[in-house]
Each structure stands twice: as structure tokens, then as C-alpha cells.
């Protein structure tokens, strides 16, 4: 990867995080930490053009189908889609407000969104249906499904994984945003009774289900691009699972890998600290710039 490209993408990822914070602070709602863990993945897919799409024709027949299964991450996808021109950026300013196009959870009527999500464990089964039709019709497009690792506790994912592996859905590319965090607990930690079920060894699980598995650092553009380098001409006739190790709340010191921030919007001093983390002196909230130190 060229340094200039990496720099441009990193800069875009930074902009996305700032926008997410701004939207959430304005609406006093939104899953910031979930959006921050997936940021580089989305920026790579869209701004890095790892996917084929046409913002002027969101239902373009030859597009790659992107399924956001972790619907809580909607707030992190909206800036990306708006920046690509799927809908006007002004919509971001009215996130979850009256008559807003954009809800807290991803909805299928938003240009660029394929499905309604927010209840977890739905995306992968739907993705297998799309992929299966793509194979039957011998289409070159791919189905790219972004999952949260917390939602892998939903059994429906494993029903879908069983099907995808059995039927060799080679046009299915899954990404797990492996931030380890759920709502109240972390998988693969045993600190407290509130910690979630063990996901490890996640790679072995998907391999056993018939996937080709690649594990990467989900915040590193170089690794993301390497993982996606051959997705249109892979040798394996298997579905692909990219386990992207990430940090929930990446880039915000009060949130990063911290409990309690799954669904929480910083205010007051917390907001000021988060602005500082992102290098912001102030945040435009509700059409006016609010100094970071003043918080809400």
C-alpha cells in the first residue's frame, strides 16, 4: 500500500470518527464505540474501493452487496455513505431527528443499505440467500457481510454458517469486527460474571464450518487491503471469513476497550476528553460550534 493512500484513508477514518461523535452528541444517541471499532473496515471498503458500488444507483445490478449485520454500527456507516454521495451530507446533521432519513439502527430505505438490522443475527442468513442466488445466476458480484463478534452468540449465525460452508458459497465474504465487547460483558475475558460466552478459537470454529479464514488487525489499512487483495479470484471455493481484531471505542481513551460504553454518549468532561483525543477544539452540535471544554 502506498504511503499516500494509507495517509488519505487514515485521514478519512479520523473524519468519520469525528462525524460520528458529532452526530451522537447532537442526537444524544448512537453506538459510538461500535462505530469506532469498524471505522477502518468501512473506510477501506468504500473509500478504498475494495467494493464495487455506484452511489448514484444504489441498487445497481452489478454492485457488491454489503450487508451490515451489526445494525448498531449504522451511525458509523452513514458518514461513509454520505461522503460517497449516496445521500446528502446534510442528513448527517439530523441523525435520528424528526423526519430524519437516518435512524439509530440501519434501515433498508437508506440509500446504500440493503437490509433492516439492529436485531442481531439476521445479516448472515440474509447474506447466504443473496450469495446463493448470485451463484445460481453465475454473477461476478460478491456479498460482503459485516458482523459484530458479540452477535455471534446468536444461533442463527451458525445455522447460516453451516449452510454457507456446506454449499460452498464462494462469493460470500464475511468480516467479523472482533472487538470482543458486547453490551455489558466481554467475550474471552473471565473478569466478571457479566462477561459473555467464549468465542475463541473463532478461526477454528469457522474453519470447521467450511470457511477460509484470515485474521488481521482491523485498524490497519495495510492488513485490510492484503486480506481483500484476491477476493475476486480466490482459489478456495469456500466462503471467506475475515476476523478483524479491533478495539471497541478505538481512538477515544474513555471508551477504548472499556465497559459501559456500548450505548453511551459522552457529555461534559467525557465529551471534552473525547474531543481532545480526536484533536478537536470544538464540536458542531445542532448547527453551532460548541467548545469541547463546555461539553453539552
Amino acid at each position: 500500500m502506498q504511503p499516500e493512500q494509507r495517509k488519505a484513508l487514515e485521514s478519512k477514518a479520523h473524519w468519520v470518527r469525528c462525524k460520528v461523535l458529532e452526530m451522537a452528541a447532537h442526537a444524544k444517541s448512537g453506538h459510538i464505540s461500535s462505530a469506532f471499532s469498524q471505522t477502518e473496515l468501512l473506510v477501506a471498503l468504500y473509500h478504498g474501493r475494495l467494493m464495487n458500488f455506484d452511489p448514484k444507483n444504489p441498487r445497481w445490478e452489478k454492485r457488491d452487496r454489503f450487508i451490515l449485520s451489526k445494525g448498531q454500527g449504522g451511525i458509523g456507516l452513514y458518514p461513509v455513505l454520505a461522503d460517497q454521495g449516496f445521500f446528502p451530507s446534510s442528513e448527517l446533521d439530523n441523525f435520528a431527528g424528526r423526519d430524519s432519513l437516518l435512524g439509530v439502527h440501519a434501515e433498508h430505505h437508506v440509500p446504500g443499505m440493503e437490509i433492516l438490522s439492529g436485531s442481531l443475527g439476521h445479516g448472515l442468513p440474509v447474506a447466504t440467500g443473496i450469495a446463493q442466488i448470485g451463484l445460481v445466476k453465475k454473477q461476478p458480484w460478491l456479498v460482503i457481510c459485516l458482523l459484530g463478534d458479540g452477535e455471534l452468540a446468536e444461533g442463527s449465525n451458525w445455522e447460516a454458517a453451516l449452510y454457507a460452508g456446506s454449499k460452498s458459497l464462494s462469493n460470500l465474504v464475511c468480516i467479523v469486527d472482533r472487538n470482543g465487547g458486547g453490551v455489558i460483558g466481554y467475550s474471552d475475558r473471565v473478569e466478571f460474571p457479566c462477561d459473555g460466552p467464549r468465542m475463541n478459537p473463532l478461526d477454528k470454529k469457522f474453519e470447521a464450518f467450511g470457511f477460509e479464514v484470515r485474521t488481521i488487525n482491523g485498524h490497519d489499512f495495510g492488513e485490510i487491503f492484503t486480506a481483500f487483495g484476491d477476493i475476486r479470484h480466490r482459489q478456495h471455493k469456500k466462503p471467506l471469513m475475515i476476523i478483524a481484531n479491533t478495539h471497541k471505542g478505538k481512538g477515544a481513551s474513555i471508551m477504548e476497550d472499556k465497559r459501559l460504553w456500548h450505548y453511551r454518549v459522552p457529555a461534559g468532561n467525557d465529551l471534552a476528553v473525547t474531543c481532545q483525543d480526536l484533536g478537536l477544539k470544538s464540536l458542531p452540535i445542532g448547527g453551532k460550534r460548541v467548545k469541547a471544554e463546555q461539553g453539552e
Binding site: 443475527g121 445455522e159 453451516l162 449452510y163
Partner: peptide, 24 residues
């Protein structure tokens, strides 16, 4: 045979996959 699919005893997958196919 190209229009017939069997998911096994997996009804969440049955409906989820139907959704994906209907979207296509």
C-alpha cells in the same frame, strides 16, 4: 433443481435466506 433449496432443520436460516433471495 436451481430453484429448490434445502437448509436443513434451521428455520431462522429458512426465513433469513428467503429474505436474501427476495431481495434479489
Amino acid at each position: 433443481p436451481d430453484q429448490y433449496f434445502q437448509v436443513g432443520i434451521a428455520e431462522q436460516q429458512l426465513i433469513g435466506m428467503a429474505c436474501g433471495m427476495a431481495l434479489e
